[in-house]
Design a protein around this nucleic acid. Structure first.
Lengths: 330, 330
DNA sequence: CTATTTTATTTAAACGTTTAAATAGCTAAT
DNA sequence: ATTAGCTATTTAAACGTTTAAATAAAATAG
C-alpha cells in the first residue's frame, strides 16, 4: 500500500508551487505555462501515480458527482433492473450512485433520504413508499434537484416525475381482455393509497365497465403483509363464481401469488385469460399462455437521469411512458 | 431552499470561536465547557438547523463512511437480494453504499473499481466477473480493505471471502438425486473459468460418479451469450437419451431457460427429477415439483459486512456457508 | 533607459471541519 | 506575593484542492 500522493508532494518534488501543479494537471492557464515545467510536473505526477482527492475537490466545488437513488424495494425485479440502468446512465455522465432500498417502509425511506442529503448528493432519484410523501419539504429545503420515478404524487404539485401512464396501461388491459373475448373480468390489486396504483385500478375499472358492463367487473384488494392468505381467499372466490373469464394481476408480487394458485384449478387460457403487470422473467416458467403489461424500464431509467440533469426551470413535469402488452408462453 | 449553516455561522451568531462550537456539538471537552455557553450554542445550532458537512469531515478524518459494492449483475435476483441486505447491514453501522453493477464485464468492473477507490470508500465488497482477477494489485495498492462475495479466487491467495461451499452443495445435489432414486443424472452448467462454478460441477460429478457410476453422469456446458440456443440443443439431447432421470441446473439463469423447455416434454417428477441452484421466487410458477439449492443470502450479506469491519490481521479467510436443499411446489 | 507588456510562477484565501496547543482570567496553595 | 492549578475559551494549523490576485523576471515599446 502506497501513500496517496497529493499536489503538495508533486510540488515539492518538482520544486514549484502547489498552484502551478494544479494548473498544469487541470489544463488551465495552459498558454501561460512553460512547456518544459508542465511536462516535468506531469511526469512526476505519473511517477507518483497521482490521483486527485475527490473529497477535497468536492469541498471546494460543492459538487460530489454522486446521485442518490432510493428505490422502494430492491428485491423487486422491477427496481433492480431500474437501479442497474440508472447506475449505468449516471456513470456515463461521470456520476456515481449512492444507493438505498426503503423496503416500502416510510421511516426507512426518510432516514435514507436524510443521509443522502447530508452526503450532499447532487441529485436524487426516488421511488417513494406509501406514507412518505411528507418528505418533499426536506428535499426542497435541501435545494437538491430530484426526480420521482415509477410513482407520482400529483397532490404534492406534480413534481418532476417519470412514470408509466398507468390509467392508459390499464385501459389497454381491459381492451386486451375484450379482444380475447372475455365477458366477465376481475382485477386483483394492492390495497394502497399510492396514486399510480389507484390510477391503475381506475383505468381498468372504468374501461372494463364500458366493455363488459359494471356487473361484470370486479376489483379485489389484497393487503400487502397478508398477501398469501388474502390471495388464497380471493382466488377461491373467483373460481367459485365460474363466470369470470378474464383476470388481471396489478402488480408482479400479486401475480407471483395468484398464478401458482391457479395451476390445475382452471383451464388457461381457454376458461380464463390472464394479464399481469410488469413483465418478469419468472412468467416464463408458468405453463400457460398469459399476457403481460410491459413497462419500458430502460427508457424510464434513462429519462429519469436525463430529467435530473435537465436544468430547465420546469420542475413540474410528469413524463408519462406507455406500456405495451405482449403475449407470453404462446 | 436555505443556505446550509456551518460551524462558522453558529460561531458568529453565538459570538464564540468555531472551535468551541465544534467541541460543544461533538460533546468533546465537555467537562471544561461552561454549561450556559454550551446550551446557547446548541440552541443556535438547532435554530439554524445545522447539519455537519460530511465532506469536510471526510477530508479531515480520511473516512468517508461509505462502502463500495460492485456486483456482477444487479438484474440477477441473487445479487439484488444481496445488495439490499448489504446496504441494510452497512446502514446499521453508519455506513452508506456506493453501488455498481459490472454486468459480468471485466472492463466495466475495473472502471467501477477505480471510481470507488478514487472516491475513497472505506471498504469494498466485490463479486468479481470472469477475467477481472487482475484487479487485486490495484485494490491492495489502494490500501482499502475488501471482502469478496459469492466468488472465490484461491489462486490469488485466498483473500477474505464469503461464499457458498460449492463443492459440498453439489455433493448434496447428487445425494438428493440418489435419494430420489435416480439412476442416471446430467448437469447443465455455464462454460466458465470461475472457480466457484468449477467447484460446483466438480462436486456434482465426483459425488455422482460414486453414486451412479461414471457412465451414468453427464455434464453439459452452455455458453453464456448463446444461452437459449445451447440449452435448446442440450435439452433435446437429454430427452433423446431417455435414460436420464435426474437433472441439475447449475445457475438460476440456466434454470430459467431449461425449465420452460421441459414443460410438456417429460413427466416431472415421475420421469425426471430436477434440482436447481439458487432458490428464486420464479420457481413457484413452475407447475412441477422440483428441488432447489438454497444459498443463505442474508447470512452471506451479513457476514460479508462483518468480515469487512473485522480488523483482525487475518485477511486470508475464506468463510464457507452451507447450502440447503428444499423441495418446492410439492 | 525608463515604462509597459508579456510570460511564468507564487501567494494566499477559501471550502468546513478537527484538535493540539496557547492563552486569559480565575482561585487556591505556598 | 508569587506560583501553581483550574476553568473556559481561542488560536492556528491541518486535511487537499481551486483560483483570483500578486509578483517577479524577461521582453518589448517609447
Amino acid at each position: 500500500m502506497r501513500k496517496k500522493a497529493s499536489l503538495k508532494d508533486i510540488a515539492n518534488k518538482a520544486n514549484v508551487s502547489i498552484a502551478l501543479v494544479s494548473y498544469v494537471l487541470n489544463g488551465k492557464n495552459t498558454k501561460k505555462i512553460n512547456v518544459e515545467t508542465a511536462n516535468r510536473i506531469k511526469e512526476i505526477a505519473d511517477e507518483l501515480q497521482y490521483r486527485p482527492n475527490q473529497i477535497a475537490k468536492s469541498l471546494k466545488s460543492n459538487k460530489t458527482y454522486t446521485i442518490g437513488l432510493i428505490v422502494a424495494d430492491i428485491s423487486n425485479f422491477f427496481y433492480s433492473y431500474i437501479a442497474g440502468h440508472i447506475e449505468e446512465e449516471a456513470n456515463n455522465r461521470g456520476y456515481n450512485v449512492l444507493f438505498g432500498s426503503a423496503y416500502e417502509d416510510p421511516k426507512r425511506f426518510k432516514k435514507l433520504l436524510q443521509v443522502m442529503i447530508d452526503r450532499q448528493v447532487d441529485g436524487l432519484i426516488l421511488a417513494i413508499p406509501e406514507g412518505a410523501d411528507d418528505c418533499f419539504d426536506d428535499i426542497i429545503d435541501s435545494g437538491i434537484s430530484y426526480v420521482l420515478i415509477d410513482r407520482e404524487f400529483p397532490f404534492c404539485g406534480s413534481l418532476k416525475t417519470v412514470c408509466l401512464d398507468n390509467y392508459n396501461a390499464s385501459s389497454l388491459v381491459a381492451e386486451k381482455l375484450k379482444s380475447l373475448n372475455c365477458t366477465s373480468v376481475a382485477g386483483i390489486a394492492l390495497q394502497s393509497n399510492l396514486y399510480h396504483l389507484k390510477e391503475r385500478t381506475r383505468g381498468f375499472v372504468e374501461t372494463s365497465n364500458l366493455f363488459f358492463g359494471e356487473q361484470n367487473v370486479q376489483m379485489y384488494r389484497v393487503i400487502e403483509d397478508q398477501l398469501a392468505e388474502s390471495v388464497s381467499t380471493i382466488v377461491k372466490d373467483i373460481l367459485a363464481q365460474k363466470s369470470i373469464d378474464g383476470l388481471c394481476c396489478f402488480t408482479n408480487k400479486i401475480a407471483m401469488e395468484v398464478l401458482p394458485q391457479l395451476l390445475n384449478k382452471v383451464e388457461i387460457p381457454q376458461d380464463m385469460r390472464i394479464v399481469c403487470f410488469d413483465e418478469v422473467e419468472a412468467f416464463r416458467l408458468f405453463p400457460h399462455k398469459l399476457s403481460v403489461v410491459k413497462q419500458p424500464l430502460y427508457e424510464m431509467s434513462k429519462k429519469a437521469v436525463e430529467l435530473l440533469f435537465d436544468d430547465s426551470k420546469n420542475d413540474k413535469v410528469v413524463h408519462y411512458l406507455n406500456a405495451t402488452i405482449t403475449d407470453m408462453n404462446t
